[in-house]
Design a protein around this nucleic acid. Structure first.
Lengths: 209, 209, 209, 209
DNA sequence: CATGAATGAGTATTCATTCAT
DNA sequence: CATGAATGAATACTCATTCAT
């Protein structure tokens, strides 16, 4: 239901378009991570993608389009990672805990991507930004749903208020945005564990440990 | 005591420099909030500050200098706000709780500034970035100190691990970075209260409610 | 064989690059002669070359590059002229005399270019300057070689000391750098003849007259 | 009889003006030698002269004025040096030889100044340039006069044609303009001697050695 | 569809000169 | 006379986008 932005193309062949776009987006993400969106040029992206500038513009209309596609891809990336982690878990309480753990792990492992998102969302044009935020919104609501289901299944969550979904989907981002501090101070897995622990305790989960 | 970056000036009169710089920084913060750092031109900043471009450059050497000064000012802003809030509180446990509440309030009330910081820190030059991160680091350590003192004064904090200082100084930022979601859904004070509540519960403070 | 500076290009087509660069260099030389290097703007050069500023920068990276290419071209110009003049002369003593005459003639005929070189070499960046001076050095040594060969072939040169090559390649430059005086006072050919005469007599060539 | 340019001043006190100007000119010459005229700013000159920018402009109207005064001063410098060298020599033939030697020595010892003159004369405004060239013209004619007098006194100068004065006042400049080559290859005095030797031989002076 | 050359609008920064104090 | 802050005009260089081949 996310109002995905449609991006027009010169090229007709739909398969070719999606294949090439995937390629471009991955290349662009690498370039943007390295140089930032403003520091990167279309030329950089084209070279990294192994295309000519002209060809690039056959699959994308503007630089903003690329940034949007990158955002979309990265957001879908961690979303899928969480979904995959709970695909085989059916008990709601376990599902929720698995989702928190998976999201936290994703935030740490994809810290470069996440930092990119948080740095460059504001560089998106209004329409693109709306679309990206809608995607994020959906993800948060997905998490809120998991919480509701866990509670319905008997999980005690006295600490879960209206912002529970937001908090659970925000605190782990610390592992990405504070990477400059954390990367040297403790092993990643340990940091993940502490964040998950904190979240569960904050929600009031009794057997937090 | 953080290694503040010194910024050279053409102008000799020190009072004039600090007065004008304060003026420039406030104007620049407004412009950057509205257009982003890259979207804003030096001309925009000069006009907003009521100066000629030439004069602006009498107080600042580069655009990066301006961004640095803005970062420094905004960081000092919330830091001072927290310090002021606990200045008259001497009991360590109360001090800590007051600090958390004040920081959370600052994050909400200064959400524009905070979002600006998180969007544009990466646009700083290496030296400036180092200086800004050092300032932030110091703030986090200040909070860690408050936690230690509270514990020493008898506060039970079973949930406070190595990352406690990071978590406490990160989660409230959600009120700024998720403003696009939260601003419509609930009154600001209520959101603040929930965040503070969550933090205390997560740390394991017994009379959290 | 002098360590020529390589100048990177955006454009890949090598033929196009050398064709356009030749065009740019000639236009730039005209502009620089008229306004001096610092007085000329990139815009001036682009217009004179019939290109957009953007296009100009597809063939050259900096204004210094242009100045370097101009120097290189002008230096190659008189060098080739001297080489051409002695190409069909094989007797060493005649070769030397022909070279002196040809160089002197070139200095007069290309006085605008030569004056440009002497005015703007110091405006070159360090690397470019080194390359240009190496080219000049080579030319001087080429002349020293001619002198040695002439002597070996029996030419009496009692006046030729260590600086002979320098002197022979310097005095004729007077026709360019003193053009403001000389242009009105005597016909160019006559001035050339006198300079050549003076050089030969100074070197001690017996049948100088 | 040189048509010296008059440069207006804000300041009335004539003694103060000439004293300060002398100071400014020496400072400016140092700065220009180090950075070139275009590379040097008025601020640089003011600082080197120990004045404020404002004060500087009390003694000079434009940057071009400074360059003109520097040219004038440097030209007068070597002129005076030559004049001093022959002040006590009255025999015309000796006077001439002494003048050639003194000029050559000056060109080597003041090579920085001479190079500056040759690099920056074209940067002068038309009026200033005219005045400087008139000064140089006068110097050349002064030398031509010495030659005439020497000949009148019985010196054989079969090699001295119309350009004799020009040649004698030009070749020694090589010691300044080719300094990049010569400074490493032979002692300065030796180079001077060879140049003087060459000039005399070129003029046809019999007992050249 | 692919290529890559052409373009021009846009911008940070410098600096000679002025002028109020 | 001295000072130094104010100014604005000037300019090299970049880069997203277009389009002829």
């Amino acid at each position: 239901m996310s109002q995905t932005r449609h991006i027009a193309t010169q090229v007709k062949d739909a398969d070719l378009v999606s294949e090439r776009r995937a390629h471009i987006v991955r290349a662009a993400a690498r370039v943007f991570r390295a140089k930032g969106f403003h520091g990167a040029t279309i030329r950089d992206v084209a070279i990294e993608a192994g295309l000519s500038q002209g060809s690039l513009y056959n699959y994308v209309r503007t630089k903003d389009d690329i940034l949007y596609l990158v955002h979309k891809d990265l957001t879908e990336g961690y979303t899928r990672e969480v979904e995959a982690a709970i695909a085989t878990v059916h008990e709601p309480r376990k599902r929720f805990r698995a989702a928190v753990a998976a999201f936290t792990r994703a935030m740490r492992r994809r810290s470069g991507d996440i930092a990119l998102i948080y740095q460059e969302t504001h560089a998106l044009g209004p329409e693109s930004r709306r679309a990206v935020l809608a995607q994020t919104e959906q993800f948060i609501q997905f998490f809120s749903g998991l919480i509701d289901e866990a509670r319905a299944a008997g999980m005690e969550l006295p600490g879960a208020g209206k912002l529970a979904g937001d908090i659970v989907t925000f605190l782990p981002i610390m592992l990405a945005l504070r990477r400059w501090r954390l990367k040297d101070s403790m092993p990643g897995e340990e940091a993940e564990a502490e964040v998950v622990q904190f979240l569960l305790r904050g929600l009031g989960v009794i057997d937090a440990v």
